[in-house]
Nucleic acid binder design. Structure first.
Lengths: 227, 227
DNA sequence: ACTATTCTAGAATTTTGTTCTAGTAATAAT
DNA sequence: ATTATTACTAGAACAAAATTCTAGAATAGT
């Protein structure tokens, strides 16, 4: 153990019982400092990750840009992948919540499905960085995070299913395996998003939202014709 | 040139003399040995990449599993990313060729579109490793490879367009921005594939191919009804 | 006051991708 | 045939980056 002599003089203010510095204006509480640090790290990391990818991002840059020490970073996130994981879970949460908020208020099958597609398009166009990061499946999730996500997925699926069920019953929507609705409704949009985000396509999802919405609706509505 | 005997090398004390280490029974030609080595490296790398991702794969493991030396690997591929790049280009070629081969012989719009979707499903289900690797957009391509791919993309797009055009003209297919056909036709399938490959869904694309084919067809056919 | 816990800090270590020098086989040039 | 050149193999050495370690400081709990 270290010899803890001499240079403590500094902080040795006689008798601090309830003496913590709570200078509300200037220095914040430790708690808020910490949470600010974590946000800073995540924000900075997202910028780097979505720009050059997780692998190419080096921890040193994050440390510098977020004004964070090695110790703090590894204390809070465990590893570089840990940061990515936190970002991923947060991002999925945000997206799912928005999607549900867009869907649930709609009363007809047609408007609901189209609202989902439209929301998807707008979300991607509005926050390309986060979208690019989420859509690039570059993240190796830990077992823990994987379970957490699976549970969120399940809950989300249940919520959408509750909305779909009546419309399936009424004959407006096709009856499909539950796992197929999302791919059919959002798959084309996400594919367009990937193209746009990676620079392979010039048209943003926002610009083609109406076409995508109509097409996706056609793909899941109950067809009266035989093909 | 240089007389090798006089100047003693300080850094390299051991010399790589033995070469007969890797001759299996008969000594093959150097050429075939080399190409076998390259294939081995690519095969082994694909297994690792699709399993844990490029970042998590370390070169040492590839070297060991492929029984390859550092020098050879860097001579042939330049870097770890170089291996990924080679795999990626080869994979895209293979997929595109198959897709075209499935599409071109079909005479009607409906059978053509459905053939594309079906091929997609089968291809992913048949070679999950390669599919997982291609669908994870984890690869940072070099400028050279990027151009090469863009050209292949263009050629591929042209070929499909040539097939689509008559059916659009005849009123069977919707007229859409060219960039939208692929996302609409293959987007849902690819989304399903991602889900299945990442373990988030239990149903393989192969199992739901028929449903996907029908739905995708509905999304791009010319609709007679208004919705 | 004392102890435990959480957090910050950065030096030290380890891991890992890549470079470097050197040697070998095959081929082209003289 | 001899020599020069090129393609390839080999692994030690290197550099850079991720992570661990040790220690000290702030806060919470008793």
């Amino acid at each position: 153990m270290g010899n803890s002599d001499s240079d403590i003089c500094h902080r040795n203010m006689t008798s601090p019982t309830m003496f913590h510095k709570r200078q509300a204006g200037k220095s914040q509480t430790r708690k808020s400092q910490t949470s600010a640090l974590k946000s800073r790290v995540m924000e900075v990391s997202l910028a780097h990750f979505s720009d050059v990818g997780i692998e190419q991002t080096n921890v040193g840059d994050i440390l510098q840009d977020a004004d964070c020490s090695v110790g703090s970073l590894y204390h809070h996130f465990g590893s570089k992948e840990g940061i990515a994981e936190a970002l991923f879970v947060e991002g999925v949460d945000h997206f799912n919540a928005g999607l549900l908020a867009a869907l649930l208020p709609r009363r007809t099958a047609s408007t609901g499905i189209k609202a989902m597609v439209t929301f998807c398009c707008e979300w991607v166009t509005d926050q390309p960085q986060l979208a690019a990061f989420l859509l690039s499946r570059e993240i190796k999730l830990s077992e823990l995070a994987r379970l957490e996500l699976r549970e969120k997925d399940r809950a989300f699926g249940q919520s959408t299913y509750d909305w779909f069920a009546p419309h399936v019953k009424s004959g407006e929507l096709q009856a499909l395996p539950t796992g197929l609705y999302m791919p059919l409704i959002c798959g084309p949009t996400l594919e367009c998003s990937r193209m746009w985000l990676s620079g392979r396509s010039a048209r943003s999802p926002g610009e083609v939202a109406a076409i995508l919405a109509e097409a996706s609706w056609q793909s899941v509505r109950k067809s009266v014709r035989k093909s």
